[in-house]
Design a protein around this nucleic acid. Structure first.
Length: 275
DNA sequence: TTCCAGGGATATA
DNA sequence: TATATCCATGGA
């Protein structure tokens, strides 16, 4: 990725490998909103502003180093796309979402966010998370930080109900306690299967939510989260019929290997936007 | 009114 | 291990 770093901004030369809307709207991130001609984004307690200007994408932020990592700028997505495009029925989805990138997000934030995502839709997920941040997170002036674990533990079931979490309210209270003894960093060094096993021991985390945490929080790209959209994608790809999501996932990961996570994002974005 | 959304927990066999 | 049922909420 061709980019320049300044004190308070990252300047990316206009590229098919970085398109703001593709990155934000592919379902991996929830804390962003339109602001003027650009987008305002928050991760943990840090923020940035994204906008396109003539031949550049500008990321304005006080946390330049963090967001270079966050936006995965060191990775060459043209290679990933070239490789994936060789697969049948992949050319169109990749062309459609050619500017998306897999963000490097905070594992703890992913755990909480994707517990909320279960059997829910994206606008509601965003709304619940935002209310949670306003209610529990630190006031940073222009925005609220994602609540720390300690801040999260101050909330009870009634609070999570009041922000619309529904039956997930009890999961959140329970998992906030479980996370006291959860070694977040240890998962980076484990293989995907071992790490998944630890994650599904958490309340409200099943296979699919675990896969999202592994993919978006830990960059375990040999995962293919199977949700209601992926089930449609599965048929689109023409794989052997099955009702089992476990079988679907294993066939998808077998098909895409170490590029599974990337494939999943292009397909999810394409199929969801087309519907 | 029913269906659906980036599903998971629980009971049951 | 595999399947059936229940679960809050709000938009379509």
């Amino acid at each position: 990725m061709d980019y320049q770093i300044y004190d308070d901004k990252i300047v990316i030369k206009d590229s098919e490998d970085f398109i703001i809307e593709h990155i934000l709207d592919c379902g991996q991130v929830f804390r962003y909103s339109k602001q003027g001609s650009g987008y305002f984004l928050v991760q943990k307690n840090k923020n940035c502003l994204l906008h396109k200007q003539e031949d550049y994408v500008i990321i304005t932020t006080d946390y330049v180093d963090e967001f270079v990592k966050y936006f995965d700028l060191e990775r060459d997505y043209s290679l990933i796309k070239a490789e994936l495009s060789k697969q049948e029925k992949m050319y169109e989805p990749i062309e459609f979402g050619k500017g998306l990138r897999l963000l490097n997000q905070d594992p703890y934030e992913m755990i909480i966010s994707f517990i909320i995502s279960a059997n829910n839709n994206i606008p509601r997920i965003k709304s619940i998370i935002e209310k949670m941040c306003v209610g529990l997170g630190k006031n940073m002036g222009d925005y609220y930080a994602f609540p720390t674990l300690k801040e999260l533990q101050r909330a009870d079931v009634d609070f999570f109900r009041s922000i619309g979490a529904g039956y997930r309210a009890e999961y959140l209270v329970k998992v906030a306690q479980q996370l006291n003894s959860f070694d977040f960093n240890s998962l980076y060094d484990l293989d995907t299967q071992q790490a998944r096993k630890l994650l599904v021991s958490l309340m409200g985390v099943g296979n699919k939510v675990a896969d999202c945490i592994l993919l978006f929080g830990y960059k375990k790209v040999d995962t293919f989260p199977v949700d209601t959209w992926s089930k449609k994608v599965y048929n689109y790809l023409g794989l052997p019929k099955t009702e089992s999501t476990i079988v679907m996932e294993s066939r998808l990961v077998e098909k895409f290997g170490q590029l599974s996570g990337y494939a999943q994002q292009y397909l999810f974005y394409y199929y969801r936007q087309m519907s």
